[in-house]
């Protein structure tokens, strides 16, 4: 997975974040989990590694839920051209 190199993430003190992309004039809000996932992808993690990270962070989550959340997150970023699989 490759992030859009022009996309910039601004982290808030509460752990949430905002994504800025020069091809859009609207900022995209990320919750704390979204920030964790974004940072993991930015550090080169693949889908399986990101899912594993999510499971460690939220032990109550099932593998299916984690996979589904990661898939949704990545799909949303793809739609906005912020990420390429």
């Amino acid at each position: 997975m490759k992030l859009n190199p022009f996309a910039v993430m601004r982290k808030s003190p509460d752990g949430s974040g905002t994504l800025f992309d020069p091809s859009s004039n609207k900022a995209l809000k990320l919750n704390v989990t979204g920030v964790i996932l974004w940072e993991a992808v930015a550090n080169g993690a693949n889908e399986a590694e990101v899912t594993e990270m999510l499971l460690k962070k939220f032990p109550g989550l099932t593998l299916e839920q984690a996979k589904s959340d990661v898939n949704y997150f990545i799909g949303q970023l793809e739609k906005k051209s912020l990420l390429q699989r």
Binding site: F6, V8, R10, T18, F20, D21, P22, S23, S24, N25, K26, A27, K29
Partner: peptide, 16 residues
């Protein structure tokens, strides 16, 4: 955030 998004987009307009 809207202001920053607008500025960032404007700053990339000619070089994107």
């Amino acid at each position: 955030d809207d202001f920053l998004a607008q500025l960032y987009r404007s700053a990339f307009f000619h070089i994107l």
